[in-house]
Amino acid sequence: MKTAAELKHGEKARISDINSDNPSYKRLIEIGFTPGQEIELVNTSLFNDPLAFSIRGTLIAIRRNEADCIILS
């Protein structure tokens, strides 16, 4: 099972599910990370954390552990 945290710089993928174990999962859904959406990893910071994704026409930065609960198909 691949997660958004494992994406490479510039790599695109489609979300298949959001793991509800992470306490932030609801916020991730509310902000637009929903199954079926395509995301792209566009920027990483020096420490590889947080990561900035392009989703629904916006850039959103989230921490690596939060990206880890975004499951890709």
């Binding site: 932030s24 916020r27 947080p50 959103i60 930065a61 921490r63």
Partner: peptide
């Protein structure tokens, strides 16, 4: 729990 979700 700490979290960081921020729109750029």
């Amino acid at each position: 729990t700490s979290s960081f979700i921020l729109e750029l």
